[in-house]
Nucleic acid binder design. Structure first.
Lengths: 96, 96
DNA sequence: TAGTTCTTGTCAAAGATTGTCTAAATCTAG
DNA sequence: CTAGATTTAGACAATCTTTGACAAGAACTA
């Protein structure tokens, strides 16, 4: 599940126009369009507002957003999987 | 295993001075010092040079470096683990 | 075809990162 | 203790990246 497509499908399910979402996010349609096409990454604040505007559970959207950032960090790297696994270990051990 | 500490321990094992490593990396001692203290993240090119200078397997160092970037991306987030797991799934499915 | 919706390109402003310099702090040998 | 060497900290401009906004074009709809 890709963040951009998810946001677009949610908006369409709710029958909202870019214009309407844009005003709820306090920006213009161009930015929302780019976000839905994956050309721009939303900021954290925009994620918060999008969750409200589109009736999405905030933690779910945040998780998707974070995972996308992680993905882009290692995407295309030969050692991507190892790197992610190592980071996961560290995060888990932090929790204890 | 933390990148900065790993680099420092490797340098010490080889009995190299910051000054010596710095010249191999084409920079000054201040930067190497900061990298070893975790104040600065090395660039990818610096990682390459450090692997050579300190006799570290490149892929191992790269993995450590990438994992640190991933870690920092989600560090402190409530959804960190879920986000990393999701990213891992995506990277794995990309591979097929 | 006119009006609306969506997309694309561009740009300056804001923000983050980088390398380098200087000087202070720490360490070590004599 | 001192002198010299090594390491660290602070500051800064230069560079690179991200961001929001605008304007104009493309695609869609009635």
């Amino acid at each position: 599940m890709i963040l951009s497509e998810f946001l677009k499908s949610k908006r369409e399910t709710k029958n909202l126009l870019l214009r309407e979402v844009a005003s709820m996010i306090d920006t213009d349609t161009a930015l929302i369009s780019k976000i839905e096409k994956g050309d721009r990454k939303p900021t954290r604040e925009q994620i918060e507002k999008l969750a409200l505007a589109l009736d999405i559970e905030y933690n779910k959207l945040l998780t998707l957003w974070l995972s996308e950032k992680v993905y882009e960090e290692v995407n295309g790297e030969e050692m991507a999987i190892d790197a992610i696994k190592l980071a996961l270990k560290r995060v888990k051990s932090d929790k204890q």
